[in-house]
Simulated assay, not measured.
Amino acid sequence: MASDDISRREAEQLLKLDAEARVTRTFEAIAAKGELWVWGDEGDILFTEDGRRRNLLPIWPHATVARLENEGDVDGEHAIRIRTDVFLKEWIPQLEEDHADIAIFPVEEVNAAVIPLADFRARLSTRR
């Protein structure tokens, strides 16, 4: 299980940001740390759907905000760290096969943004 990467107080402040600020903060954190966070357990990663039934992979900029948003939902689930280079090389091709998009920094089941994979890849590439 991932340890806290920011304080609980910092995480609670981030959870209160509006959607645009959460998107900005997510890309800033990914660029600065070279990692992002998803939620799941040893065998499964959390995916959601939107109103159009698109598969979405929720991501968070910090383990602590992912934990505050999801902890307690399902026993054994936790924040999972993924290095950006691994995400681009291994995860994006699999997500393309699965016809999934990226849900940025959801809070109370509301995504800050849903970004198609090509756009997500481009935004990450320009920040590296």
Rank of each mutant, 00 (worst) to 15 (best):
G34S: 09
V38T: 15
W91K: 05
L14P: 01
E49Y: 13
D41F: 03
E49P: 00
E12R: 15
A29C: 09
G40I: 08
G72H: 08
V38N: 05
T24I: 04
E12H: 02
E20P: 03
T24E: 15
W39F: 11
T48H: 08
G43I: 00
P61H: 07
E12Y: 00
H99W: 03
R25C: 07
R52A: 15
A21Q: 14
E42H: 07
D98K: 13
I82T: 08
P58C: 10
L57P: 01
G76V: 04
W37V: 15
L17C: 01
E97P: 01
N70P: 01
L57K: 02
D41Y: 01
H62S: 15
L14D: 06
K89A: 14
D44V: 09
R67E: 09
V86R: 14
L88T: 06
G34K: 08
L15C: 02
E49K: 15
R22F: 03
R22T: 03
L95R: 04
I59M: 13
A29R: 14
L36S: 03
A63H: 11
A66W: 05
I59L: 15
L14V: 06
L95E: 03
R52N: 13
L95T: 06
V23Q: 08
L68R: 04
V23L: 06
L36R: 03
G34D: 11
T84H: 01
D18R: 09
L17R: 08
T26P: 00
E20V: 07
G43P: 01
E97Q: 14
L14A: 05
R25G: 01
A21F: 02
V74Y: 09
R25K: 14
E42R: 12
E71R: 10
F47I: 02
A103R: 14
I102F: 03
K16W: 00
T26S: 11
W60P: 11
H62W: 15
T24N: 05
R83F: 12
K16D: 08
P58A: 09
N70H: 15
T64Y: 04
N55P: 01
Q13H: 07
D73W: 11
A79N: 03
H99D: 14
W37T: 02
A19I: 02
G40R: 06
I80N: 07
L88S: 03
D41E: 07
T26C: 09
G43S: 13
I30Q: 00
A29K: 10
D44S: 12
N55H: 13
T84M: 07
D50Y: 09
H78W: 11
G76M: 04
A63W: 11
T48D: 10
E20F: 08
V38W: 05
G72C: 06
D101M: 09
I30T: 04
